[in-house]
Design a protein around this nucleic acid. Structure first.
Lengths: 139, 139
DNA sequence: TTCTAAAGATCAGCCGGCTGACTAATTCGG
DNA sequence: CCGAATTAGTCAGCCGGCTGATCTTTAGAA
């Protein structure tokens, strides 16, 4: 496995970390993708396109993720009076509660690694350069 | 995004790198998962359970991946005479050819990063510790 | 020897990425 | 002011992870 190309190591590591997470998350009725959305709307309501851009995900993917969150009662969608194409996504009280609980364990489950800041920098580099113009917004 | 938990950075980076790959790979009629299998059977024929273990993937997932590779004509499955539960997976000439072409570009597409060996070590660490006994074989 | 447990492979069904195609609403140019 | 282009959202369908259940075959124990 030491001979594997770096990209393959990256996706394998990612999958295994996500898997380790899954149990704790499903116990809360959440999923990985859902947690990201809860995090993003923590800063206030947003439209689906905005959320997709921030999560670096296509709008169709975000649409389904939000649909599942709504089904669980963690968020609500309200039509925007000013632009009736838009649906504004908002956290519910239940969503706020589950986010508070999930957030605390999010960092704890990540395995120990020698140079954590170095790893984070490398990942941010990769995201920046590999995003290839698809995600204009850097924030 | 600098505030994101490391696990989320990891999966985001992984997805973006895979996406950058997809175009080159689909042009060859291949997929990420398929390429891994072609790499693994490069060392000789193997059973599906063996391949699943080496790729760190469940047997059901490997089953479908192999099915698609077979459909494309890149591998063949033969029943094992000694143990009729087993199906031995073998590369075809076409599979060998496409692997040779894909392999050469695999490393080239990975973005530049400062401390590549450090990154690889960190990822191997994560895979090792986060595999949590699921994948006994360390090789 | 027979009968049960384990192993290899698959099926069904879920989630979360993606693309392509579509609708409804808004914006903008002539 | 009206029609074309753009934008927000969704639907359909694919791939690749996963779990749980099932089937056939092999191995092992009584």
């Amino acid at each position: 496995m030491r001979d594997w190309p770096t990209g393959r190591l990256l996706s394998t590591a990612s999958r295994l970390v996500e898997h380790a997470w899954l149990e704790a998350l499903t116990a809360l009725g959440l999923s990985h993708a859902g947690l990201i959305v809860l995090h993003l709307v923590d800063g206030g309501p947003a439209t689906q396109v905005e959320l997709a851009g921030l999560a670096r995900v296509e709008a169709q993917t975000m649409s389904r993720t939000i649909e599942r969150l709504e089904r669980e009662g963690f968020i609500e969608r309200h039509p925007d009076a000013a632009d009736r194409r838009r649906r504004v996504v908002e956290r519910t009280a239940s969503g706020a509660a589950v986010f508070a609980r999930a957030r605390s364990i999010e960092a704890e489950l990540f395995p120990e690694v020698d140079d954590l800041p170095g790893l984070r920098d490398a990942l941010l580099d990769i995201i920046g350069s590999s995003g290839g113009g698809r995600w204009a917004d850097g924030r």
